[in-house]
């Protein structure tokens, strides 16, 4: 664990808590994209299935439980408790245009299968590489679901950014949420540089997805720093 990864996790936690408190305190989810929150809940669910099978550290387990709990609590508040304040008319990004391609890509590009092996699996030729069957264990499933969650997380914020561009403005608290959410993966990029030089750790899938994810926030970061820092509303 290095300082960049720790501050990255704390920034992520701050974002999740800020959003949850904003909705809970104001009893409103105006300006919040429910679709992005569903996608984040899906990201955490598919990434943290290993909670059931492996123990890494108390910190790791605690944070995973908090992330999953807050994600589902946020989705509950948006679609159930404060449903009347959900702005569905502006939350129109087609999330299926994200989930389907990401799902396909996670099968084709992951740490377990090359595309050729994948075809063999599909044709069920190579028995031991079967995804889930008597001859395999669930590690392949977990690996593909982890890859799916990495790819999905990199684009999960798009419905939210799309909604803000449609409404033309965002509450200041929502911009703080987005700032910390974008900052977290930017800090993870520095963490991966650090781990590459000091631990020889290198995970191309996470790095490429993390770069894409951070690039999506660049436009917002510029607006955030030039506008919100001077405590103006964020006109786009």
């Amino acid at each position: 664990m290095n300082i960049f990864r720790l501050t990255g996790d704390l920034s992520h936690l701050a974002a999740i808590i800020i959003l949850l408190l904003k909705i809970w305190k104001t009893r409103s989810c105006a300006g919040i994209s429910g679709k992005s929150q569903i996608l984040f809940a899906l990201v955490f669910t598919t990434r943290y299935l290993d909670l059931l099978t492996s123990y890494i550290s108390l910190y790791n387990t605690f944070m995973k439980v908090v992330y999953i709990g807050c994600a589902y609590a946020t989705v509950y508040l948006i679609y159930m408790k404060f449903k009347a304040t959900y702005d569905g008319n502006h939350d129109t990004f087609r999330a299926e245009f994200l989930v389907v391609p990401v799902g396909g890509l996670s099968f084709l590009v992951n740490h377990d299968f090359t595309p050729l092996e994948f075809l063999l699996v599909i044709m069920y030729v190579s028995y031991d590489m079967a995804l889930c069957g008597p001859g395999s264990n669930c590690s392949h499933c977990f690996q593909i679901l982890w890859t799916f969650s990495i790819y999905l997380e990199s684009v999960a914020i798009l419905p939210q950014l799309f909604m803000i561009s449609k409404t033309g403005e965002a509450e200041t608290i929502t911009t703080h949420y987005l700032f910390f959410l974008g900052l977290y993966r930017a800090l993870y990029l520095i963490n991966w540089i650090w781990r590459f030089y000091f631990e020889g750790f290198f995970d191309l899938i996470a790095i490429v997805a993390g770069v894409v994810q951070t690039i999506l926030y660049c436009d917002f970061f510029y607006l955030y720093v030039t506008k919100v820092v001077y405590s103006e509303r964020l006109p786009l």
């Binding site: 990434r47 890494i56 790791n60 995973k64 740490h111 590690s139 690996q143 993870y188």
Partner: peptide, 10 residues
């Protein structure tokens, strides 16, 4: 079949 990667990051 290489040991499936364990992911220690969140």
């Amino acid at each position: 079949d290489e040991e499936t990667k364990e992911h220690d990051e969140l």
